[in-house]
Amino acid sequence: MSVLEVVGDVVAVVLLLLGALLCLTAGIGLVRFPDVLTRMHAGTKPQVLGVLLIMVAGAIRLQGWSATWMLLLVAVFQLLTAPVSAHMISRVAYRRRHVRRDLLLVDELRADDELRDRVYRGDEPADAPPGEPGQTLAERSGENRNPRDERG
């Protein structure tokens, strides 16, 4: 066993332990944080950095290029897909008001809050335009009621 292999093993083990530690912190953050956005903040820690560290460790430990390329594919795939899914989940979470607004420091999507809190029940469809909640709700209920009346 040459010196280079020993150094490679030590680096790989350190990276593995760091990645596992990130997974543990993700679990702790998921349990302790108060709402969807903060839980997602904690839960996506291992999604990019942890997986990247563990993939580098695996690429060091595994022999042969085929495994290395596949691990690189997984890492690139995580980098591409993590922002997309986080964006979709957080958008739906904001629109459905699974967000503790009193804990937000900056809320750039907030229109005028009084009208919005009165009209939006938190169950509006995700494609409802945020600007005119009252009009949207009225139109939606009108659309939903008319066919039923004609049918009944």
Partner: peptide, 30 residues
């Protein structure tokens, strides 16, 4: 809420993937 469960499932799958990779790295098993 359902979204909390989605986030938890996502994290759980990532942790499972990390566990598989840890197994692969420790056992040198590709």
């Amino acid at each position: 809420s359902l979204l909390d469960r989605v986030v938890a499932t996502d994290t759980l799958l990532v942790i499972i993937a990390a566990g598989l990779a840890v197994h692969a790295a420790l056992e040198r098993d590709p």
